[in-house]
């Protein structure tokens, strides 16, 4: 191998600093969340304890954290499943170049780039004018989909752009129906990418703030609850919460990435399933 040029070392340092910039703050608050009971919002550490984590579990020092966590979890799963199903269907539709595909594509892009507060405001207005009550599972759910679906669809585009059509043609030549082709050929091939779509669907919903703000109603999701805390909580308890929910996010990301990896490995090992029948 040729020796590394000097630029490599300069850029490597730059990259390391970038990672420090990216992760430094969150590492800092996770250290500070172990402040002693008298500790403040910054260094020095005033003793080391798990006091602030216990504080989180005590009812009502600080709002309804666990209720909002459960709601965010439920909403995240709802959004995740919907995003996967709708994105896959739409991805297949776009391969057929149906009339109106162009408009729908631009609508999806618009959904991605539109300032989030417009969705929040607009959905809130519709609900109030129609006399409905906004609720995280109805208006909040729909508002979040306008954020997750574009990502889902873009991933499906990337997947189908690389999809080898000859697999489908082979299936059809063997007499497979449309549905059989999708069920036994297309879906298994794109399955690992669906994990990616699911990851986006869940995490973007779980962390969504702006589009949920006016559409969640009287029961907050976790990000709304956390934001509410920033205005009236001035103790490290908010760091403890930040640490826990970030760890939870990392765990979720880990599970998704791991399953994608396992799936890819298993496929590489098994290779063809020719002759095994369906």
């Amino acid at each position: 191998m040729e020796p590394r040029p000097r630029s490599f070392y300069v850029l490597a340092v730059f990259f390391a600093l970038f990672l420090l910039f990216l992760y430094g703050p969150i590492v800092t608050i996770s250290i500070l969340s172990f402040q002693g009971p008298q500790g403040g919002l910054t260094f020095p550490m005033n003793g080391v304890s798990t006091y602030w984590f216990h504080d989180l579990f005590r009812q009502q020092a600080v709002g309804d954290i666990w209720g909002s966590f459960r709601r965010s979890l439920a909403l995240g799963l709802m959004v995740m499943i919907t995003t996967v199903v709708v994105s896959v269907l739409a991805g297949m539709a776009f391969r057929k170049r149906f009339a109106g595909a162009g408009i729908l594509f631009y609508l999806t892009i618009a959904s991605l780039v539109i300032p989030s507060i417009l969705i929040s405001l607009g959905v809130g207005l519709i609900f109030s004018q129609l006399g409905f009550t906004v609720h995280w599972a109805t208006s909040g759910f729909g508002a979040q989909l306008t954020w997750t679906l574009p990502f889902g669809l873009l991933i499906m585009f990337a997947v189908f752009n690389r999809f080898d059509k000859s697999y489908e043609e082979a299936a059809r030549d063997q007499g497979a129906t449309n549905w059989q082709t999708i069920r036994h050929v297309v879906l298994p091939i794109i399955a690992p990418s669906l994990i990616g779509v699911a990851l986006f669907g869940f995490t973007l919903s779980y962390d969504e703030f702006a589009r949920t703000l006016l559409t969640a109603g009287s029961y907050n999701t976790l990000p709304l609850e956390v934001f509410g805390m920033t205005t009236n909580v001035t103790s490290p308890v908010i760091y403890a919460l930040g640490t826990l929910t970030t760890l939870f996010s990392f765990a979720i990301i880990g599970v998704f990435l791991l399953s994608a990896w396992v799936m890819a490995r298993r496929r590489a090992r098994q290779g063809s399933d020719a002759g095994k029948g369906v």
Partner: peptide
């Protein structure tokens, strides 16, 4: 038939975007 399947598959996406993107903007 191709257009029809295409529309059916795209319908959920179109419906969601109409309800939660287009209608809100019109309302605003």
């Amino acid at each position: 038939a191709r257009h029809l399947t295409g529309w059916l598959q795209a319908a959920p996406l179109a419906l969601i975007l109409l309800t939660f993107l287009v209608l809100p903007i019109i309302t605003i």
